[in-house]
Design a protein around this nucleic acid. Structure first.
Length: 499
DNA sequence: CGGCTTTGACCTGCGC
DNA sequence: GCGCAGGTCAAAGCCG
């Protein structure tokens, strides 16, 4: 029966089979049903088996029954044809959608190429005038986190430090020319090879946050005397937030492994380690501020060596970015690296414009940022409690208030989001609005929030978000970068990678 | 029963 | 070398 089905396949089925290789994922469940009904009756000539059956049955069946049977067959054929038509129509629609996606993809790729063409032109002109930094034309890796670029497998894994671009750019022009990173978070190699895992294992022996420094050291061994002079341990990132709960929910899974009463603070300090991966080196300790018990100081140390959820990536990216910034700052200038005694810290930048004057290459500026060293640990503190942009008194506006509850997540980024613009919007809707600049253009979203802080309505917020989104997306550079990001996303999806 | 928290003991690094 | 303080370990207890 089965083989005969195949032999007697109608032309309709043939057309379906023709489409299969390309649109196999458009197959519908009804197809087997269709086969069963069509194959016998499509050409109106019953197969041999049926004919013999008919001979046998003819003696016992009346003509009326025969007619009923024919009628049923006709009905089945027509219904099957109707179903086929529907499936075909659906197939056409999906085909159309796919062609649209491909079209968009191609246009984005073209924009991407144009962008790099412009980039090369700019660089060639920069070589003529090396003294001019030209912020707006710099190729910026708009990543808040540590970007693991394993693109050049033959060269081994290579960390691209998003904030420590400056001199590195000139060293790595070739690399940068080939790929623009717009991951607003930690990126992981979609297709890790065995060699990568081996490298990862090797890397685990090294404190992860020191790796960028080591790379920098090798790259800048000539001009980086400062870093050699100060024996730095793992970089730390402290985040000060107003939080009612014991710890703030940063999306990660933590296990408490210790508690201590630290000197100078009656509040106990709790020690946590990341439990998302048994080998994850990331630690954090949480302590309430002695002066203001409502302020929670969370200090992160290390970099996650495993994929993170979107919400966890946000905080990881932020802290990683801050750590990168810290490393970059400490290795490029003396700014902010003042060794202070015991628990005191030294504020080296003020109110949301950290390092703007001295390090304009940073695409983001962070809230009130403090750099200090504590027991040889370089520590950067992101004070999200006293930034003028984050008006604590305005508790009605969640956009303005970094008050954390157990359900609040720092969600600066969404690397796995399929819709970038919507992710921007959603991020702004439920997160601390970290203002940032791109290619020297600072988004004005917070000015918008600020000016309307007293009468902030949801409508107004959404307008501002829309304006901010528009400002971002209207920037051709941003669009090119977006295109690149989507391109890499499409590539990853295409290769079956998990984002 | 497994996972998490608690908590005292222990380790380590730094300053004197 | 000693003391101090930060950081970690691990056994005991708790909880779902």
């Amino acid at each position: 029966m089965q083989s005969r089905d195949v032999k007697s396949s109608s032309s309709m089925e043939a057309s379906l089979i023709m489409e299969k290789p390309m649109f196999s994922f458009f197959e519908v469940e009804e197809e087997p049903k269709i086969k069963n009904t069509i194959h016998f009756h499509d050409d109106q000539t019953p197969p041999q088996e049926m004919k013999s059956d008919k001979k046998f049955v003819d003696s016992s069946l009346s003509i009326g029954e025969d007619l009923t049977k024919d009628y049923k067959q006709t009905v089945l054929v027509s219904s099957a044809k109707a179903e086929m038509g529907q499936v075909r129509e659906e197939n056409q629609k999906l085909k159309h959608k796919l062609s649209m996606v491909l079209k968009d993809y191609k246009s984005l790729q073209m924009h991407f190429n144009d962008f790099f063409q412009q980039q090369e032109d700019t660089k060639s002109s920069e070589k003529l005038a090396p003294d001019q930094e030209g912020d707006a034309d710099e190729l910026i890796s708009l990543s808040l986190g540590t970007v693991s670029s394993y693109k050049h497998k033959s060269d081994g894994p290579k960390k691209v430090n998003c904030f420590s671009k400056s001199k590195q750019d000139s060293d790595d022009d070739d690399d940068d020319d080939q790929e623009l990173k717009l991951g607003l978070g930690c990126e992981f190699d979609p297709t890790p090879t065995k060699a990568d895992f081996d490298n990862l294992k090797k890397d685990e022996k090294i404190p992860t946050l020191e790796r960028p420094v080591q790379i920098l050291k090798t790259k800048r061994s000539d001009d980086n005397e400062l870093l050699d002079q100060i024996p730095l341990k793992k970089a730390r990132v402290s985040v000060k937030v107003v939080c009612d709960t014991q710890t703030m929910n940063d999306g990660c899974q933590w296990r408490k492994y210790g508690q201590k009463i630290a000197k100078g603070n009656p509040c106990p300090r709790s020690y946590y380690r990341c439990t998302l991966s048994p080998s994850c080196p990331v630690r954090k300790h949480v302590q309430r501020c002695a002066e203001d018990r409502s302020v929670l100081i969370t200090t992160y140390e290390g970099t996650h060596n495993h994929p993170l959820s979107v919400s966890a990536t946000a905080m990881a990216s932020t802290t990683s970015a801050a750590a990168s910034m810290l490393k970059s700052t400490s290795s490029t200038s003396q700014l902010g690296l003042s060794t202070t005694a015991a628990t005191s810290t030294t504020t080296t930048s003020t109110h949301g414009m950290g390092y703007k004057s001295r390090a304009p290459q940073y695409p983001f500026y962070l809230p009130k940022t403090t750099i200090s060293t504590y027991q040889s640990h370089p520590t950067i503190t992101l004070d999200l409690t006293s930034n003028p942009l984050f008006n604590r008194s305005n508790s009605s506006n969640i956009l303005m208030t970094p008050r954390f509850s157990s359900s609040t997540c720092l969600n600066f980024s969404s690397p796995s989001s399929s819709s970038f613009s919507s992710s921007i919007e959603s991020n702004y809707n439920n997160t601390i609005p970290i203002p940032f600049s791109y290619h020297g253009i600072q988004t004005t979203s917070h000015d918008g929030f600020k000016s309307n802080s007293s009468s902030a309505s949801q409508q107004h917020s959404s307008d501002t978000i829309a304006a901010a989104t528009k400002a971002l997306t209207s920037n051709p550079s941003f669009r090119s970068a977006l295109a690149a990001s989507i391109t890499s996303l499409v590539r990853n999806v295409g290769s079956g990678a998990k984002i």
